[in-house]
Simulated assay, not measured.
Amino acid sequence: MGSLLYDGEDRPIHIDDRALAHLKVVIATKLRRQESFTLSWKHSDSEPGGRSTIWLHPSIPLRFVFDEEEPPELNMQWVEDLMHSANSTGGIMLVDEVLDV
């Protein structure tokens, strides 16, 4: 389970390493372009119900921490799906990976 450390917060946002690796590509691309946007996710079963949203801006400190030493192979369709949501008015909604069967 990876973590997203946002704006010096003491409490990390826990996100599966694989999902975090895909989010990192999309977030880094948007921030490199000096674009601001939101990131939303549903709370895990271990947290109180609901969802959260944060505002991401190039000037806000952000750190990605992975438990796995090696990065996973990326599913480019998932990256594209996340990028498409990042470019929408609602911002990135962390959705599950869809695998071709």
Score class of each variant (00 low, 15 high):
22 H>S: 13
91 G>W: 04
75 N>S: 12
42 K>C: 02
33 R>E: 08
69 E>K: 13
63 R>N: 13
89 T>N: 13
83 M>W: 05
16 D>T: 02
46 S>Q: 14
74 L>W: 06
32 R>N: 11
59 S>V: 13
64 F>N: 06
40 S>A: 12
82 L>F: 11
73 E>S: 06
59 S>A: 10
101 V>W: 12
68 E>H: 15
84 H>K: 10
92 I>D: 03
78 W>M: 09
91 G>Y: 01
33 R>Y: 03
92 I>L: 08
14 H>M: 02
28 A>P: 06
78 W>D: 05
19 A>H: 14
66 F>Q: 01
52 S>D: 07
55 W>C: 05
66 F>I: 02
73 E>C: 08
17 D>K: 03
24 K>F: 07
35 E>L: 00
43 H>W: 03
44 S>T: 15
67 D>T: 15
83 M>E: 15
94 L>K: 06
71 P>N: 02
83 M>L: 15
85 S>L: 04
72 P>E: 03
87 N>W: 08
71 P>S: 01
2 G>S: 10
85 S>F: 00
20 L>Q: 10
75 N>R: 07
95 V>D: 02
19 A>P: 04
74 L>H: 15
22 H>F: 08
11 R>K: 15
15 I>V: 06
56 L>W: 12
17 D>Y: 07
33 R>D: 09
80 E>L: 09
14 H>N: 03
88 S>G: 06
40 S>M: 10
80 E>A: 14
76 M>D: 14
12 P>H: 06
99 L>C: 10
42 K>E: 10
45 D>S: 10
15 I>W: 00
18 R>T: 15
25 V>H: 07
2 G>D: 10
96 D>H: 12
76 M>P: 11
79 V>G: 00
82 L>M: 06
23 L>K: 13
61 P>F: 12
60 I>Q: 06
62 L>M: 09
2 G>V: 15
96 D>T: 11
40 S>N: 13
90 G>Q: 13
13 I>T: 05
19 A>D: 15
9 E>F: 03
52 S>M: 12
89 T>V: 06
20 L>A: 12
69 E>V: 13
45 D>A: 06
44 S>E: 09
57 H>G: 07
46 S>L: 14
